[in-house]
Design a protein around this nucleic acid. Structure first.
Length: 450
RNA sequence: UCCUGAAUAGCUCAGCUGGUUAGAGCAUCUGACUGUUAAUCAGAGGGUCCGGGGUUCAAGUCCCUGUUCAGGAGCCA
């Protein structure tokens, strides 16, 4: 068998074929005609190219076929690549013949603007439009950047299970399913606990996969199914953890700037803020952040019986909401770490500060430009008895955590890790308005189709 | 779960203090044009005004109710 696929030509390489006769395969992105001249904007997944069909240059049948093309009709076109200033992209195809695969039905997504609900209902078609196409390509580059960075830093991929026997952090609502004769299983909301076991085996590891949250969140930064990368490393303390998160973030942005120039242009993303992501991220302890909020008169907003109340000054011990995070971040144009959170507002597995048991060695990385929380991580509790105490305090099922406690019995070491939300990172870097634009088929509270 | 808002042609929307036969642009179809970039010009077809109830001589418009959707809070990545 010959490897026919290797001979296919793509629009992104069009300039390489200047003067040659080639065949392109794709879909009609747009079409305009002017009598004996037809302009087909052909889309092939790698780009869009203008194909010019002049009545005198093709057979009568081919010209009629070109005239009959509708938006998203599929075809192959053969012609000569010519440079032309009037063509978008600088090169066009002077068509000599064409083969139509299918004349498309009336396409619902016209080149005019559309509403959000309509587009998301037609997500399977919306993916073809230039903005969505660009975001998906950036997403792909970000995933590669993450994996390259970790692989090149000595981390090894160790996938975590998706079906789990319990709620990992014991807090948020999970999707539940039957599991043979063993009762209920839950879709994982984090691979972290398993990543800890992996780290004790391989040293530096990461898990990268889908995670599920059944919380009825309805905002532009929440999905019920999203992808998360979770590095976990033995012997890392919180300092190492933050430095790793910073280095990874800088690397991701650098790779996108280097490889996605066209995509960012399509998205009309101002790249100046991205160029500022060079490292040396500001760091603030939770206590320093609270002091800043107090000095700047940012209150705690609490709802009592449906009525919002502002509480001044912001009390130490309360977790930050969007209002506080955005206020804090207005000072910075790079991501910022906030670390050493109150024990009470954080998960049971986070390491208590031996010098101040009121706080745990946890950190959040907040993005600039109102990107919100991109990363959450911590040093993990490595003391068996303290961890047991926390598990009991949270009323978690002890039998199911026995294996997790074992990790503290057989050569326990300091270790740390974090989770980075892929879609939130894509949203920040691409400037997408809504997180559902950053994953091919978003799963949200009111929608599971398509 | 709570708060707020929305639903009119395939799509995006307009439709005033209730008043004749519900409008526009795009898309579709027909015709004209050798340089279009969301082409232009001429013409045509296309409606359960979200469902139900009510007020009124008269409801797309006002009231009640249901449904669906949106984004904000909470929760988090």
């Amino acid at each position: 068998m010959s490897a026919r696929y290797k001979s296919y030509k793509y629009i992104e390489d069009l300039s390489k074929y200047d003067g040659q006769e080639i065949t392109l395969n794709g879909w009609v992105y747009n079409k305009t005609g002017k009598g004996k001249l037809q302009f087909i904007q052909l889309r092939d997944g790698s780009g869009v190219a203008q194909c010019v069909v002049f009545k005198g240059n093709v057979s009568e049948e081919d010209f009629e076929a070109a005239k009959s093309l509708t938006q998203e009709s599929s075809l192959s076109v053969t012609g000569t690549v010519k440079s032309n200033d009037r063509a978008p992209g600088g090169f066009e195809l002077d068509v000599t013949s064409l083969k139509v695969y299918q004349i498309a039905d009336e396409y619902p997504i016209s080149p005019k603007e559309h509403g959000d609900a309509f587009l998301i209902e037609n997500r399977h078609l919306w993916l073809r439009s230039s903005r969505q196409h660009a975001i998906m390509r950036v997403r792909s580059v970000i995933v590669k950047a993450i994996r390259d960075f970790l692989d090149n830093s000595g981390f090894r991929l160790m996938d975590s299970p998706i079906l789990t026997p319990n709620a990992c952090e014991g807090t948020s609502t999970l999707f539940e399913t039957k599991y043979f004769d063993l009762g209920n299983a839950y879709l994982s909301q984090s691979g972290q606990l398993y990543a800890e076991a992996s780290a004790m085996a391989l040293g530096r590891t990461y898990t990268f996969g889908p995670t599920f949250r059944a919380e009825k969140s309805k905002t532009r930064k929440h999905l019920t199914e999203f992808w998360m990368v979770e590095p976990e490393a033995a012997f890392f303390d919180l300092e190492d953890d933050m430095q790793l998160a910073e280095d990874m973030t800088v690397y991701i942005v650098k790779q996108v700037l280097a490889n996605c120039e066209k995509e960012l242009e399509t998205l009309e993303r101002d790249i100046e803020p991205l160029k500022k992501i060079v490292g040396g991220f500001p760091r603030m302890s939770y206590t320093e952040a609270v002091e800043w909020l107090q000095e700047n008169k940012v209150p705690l907003i609490q709802k009592v019986d449906g009525v919002e109340k502002e509480i001044h000054p912001f009390p130490w011990g309360e977790d930050f909401g969007t209002v506080q995070e955005e206020a804090l971040m207005e000072q910075f144009d790079q991501p910022c770490f906030i670390y050493d959170y109150p024990t009470e507002v954080k998960a049971f597995y986070m390491k208590r500060d031996p010098e101040n048991p009121k706080v745990v060695k946890a950190m959040d990385m907040l993005g600039p430009e109102k990107a919100g929380e991109l990363i959450g991580g911590s040093q993990r509790e490595d003391d068996h008895d303290l961890l047991l105490e926390r598990i009991q305090h949270e009323d978690l099922p002890l039998e199911e955590f026995q294996w997790y406690l074992d990790l503290r019995k057989y050569g326990s070491v300091p270790h740390s890790g974090f989770g980075m939300g892929l879609e939130r990172t894509v949203k920040w870097i691409t400037g997408a308005k809504h997180i559902r634009e950053t994953i091919p088929m978003p799963r949200t509270i009111h929608r599971i189709v398509p």
